[in-house]
Design a protein around this nucleic acid. Sequence first.
DNA 1: TCTAAGGGCTCCTGTTAGGGTAGAGTCAAC
DNA 2: GTTGACTCTACCCTAACAGGAGCCCTTAGA
Lengths: 250, 250
Amino acid sequence: MLYTVKEISELAKVTVKTMHHYHRIGLLLPCCVSDAGYRLYGEKELERLQQILFYRELDFPLKEIKKLLDGEPERLSILACQKQLLFSRMQRLERLVQTIDESIRCTAEGVMMDKKAMFNGFGTEQEWKEALSEQTQYLKAKYNYDLIEENPIDVASMNQSAQDAMHFMVRMANALREGVRFDDQKVQNLIERHIHSLNKQGHVTTAASFAAQAKFFLHDEFHRNMLEAQQTGLSYYLYVAAEDLATKKV
Amino acid sequence: MLYTVKEISELAKVTVKTMHHYHRIGLLLPCCVSDAGYRLYGEKELERLQQILFYRELDFPLKEIKKLLDGEPERLSILACQKQLLFSRMQRLERLVQTIDESIRCTAEGVMMDKKAMFNGFGTEQEWKEALSEQTQYLKAKYNYDLIEENPIDVASMNQSAQDAMHFMVRMANALREGVRFDDQKVQNLIERHIHSLNKQGHVTTAASFAAQAKFFLHDEFHRNMLEAQQTGLSYYLYVAAEDLATKKV
DNA sequence: TCTAAGGGCTCCTGTTAGGGTAGAGTCAAC
DNA sequence: GTTGACTCTACCCTAACAGGAGCCCTTAGA
């Protein structure tokens, strides 16, 4: 599949002029040129354009983008690096928001703001960027493999919990609200008693399997929402407490 | 108190050239000029320069900045508007990070990525900015007063890392309240960015060590209470999310 | 088969936001 | 009263495109 300049420009939301420009400076060459001299781009070029745009977003000069892309052909490490750079850009913006908040406060109160604090977050990123850009090697070594592999959510297929867990949950929620530690004896007893009652009702459950179930609740949208609706943080509290009990019981 | 170009340039981290330029185009005039023709700036000019830099950060052309600042002399409404703009810029960056994540996944799996999805988040902000910039009136009416009242915590007295940590916790608490999954990309990114920032500040931290730290918070009365005071369940949420990130990173 | 609309190409000039020197005047301290 | 840091204007330079002129290519429809 080949794309004309127009098609590319619509896909990537750049102007045709930009495509011409990138061709002229050798940043992004068309994969072939038609008899009539039309530029035609393929998948590879699309990928490269994407990288270019990420770097451009971060205000890298085109010359440097070219150097970086020509020097490092590994798409994955480039992407990982770009992600880090986007992160630090976001942090910079967060810093700026803090500065704005400070300014708003001072202006509202009529207080004079600290002159230096007025410009917090403005100059710093450039230095960071350079530092990071030089550290590409380091980042690559550190993050490349880390960031790549994805996890398939290992959903332990558990049977449905009984409806009378309601009572148990209410007590757990109360404990959470009252600030009772997850490893407090009261909480542990609560869980043990609940497990006991589950077994009585025919649901064979151990501390470990209960912990697994709690973990499942974390992943399962329905159960998690149900618990969180009852009390914010309940699903996480339950999981941590159950996990703790299970490890102690081994 | 009057400042020379050099002093200003060091305070605001801009070059003297920039100051000259802003003078020439009438964007930022010195409050007075010495006999020898030296530019001298006062507090008012510092404030205006701050506004200029905020707008510049958002890629507003200088002409438009001039129009905006000359048209709207109310500092508070300008700041409130700029804050909104910074937020939407951050959202855009978040979308770009999502796009990167998608790209990383597809590249790692060798799957061909949807061509349009490859460029998600690139072109859109400009339109937003224009829309927002036109809506200044609206934003002013809607946000001006909302945004002003600040939390009583004395932000100024906190050091950078404490501010970062607070900011991070606030966002985590929001995520928890809003029912965002612990393994949602947004939360994961939040943590990654926080780790990133910790490392920047000299605290060498990995996903694993951060998870260990979160675990320690669970056990430590003081930290747990602090987190739970901020939002019920936060310490558990933080731990589960951190643990999840760490296991993914192995 | 002709034609008009819509792309596309090159070449040239224009714009924005400054950067880099030069050459000369100025300030502040020892 | 001289030295070194600072400042001024003036002029030219650069990056990353944008706009337009003038001309070519392609393809759907009469």
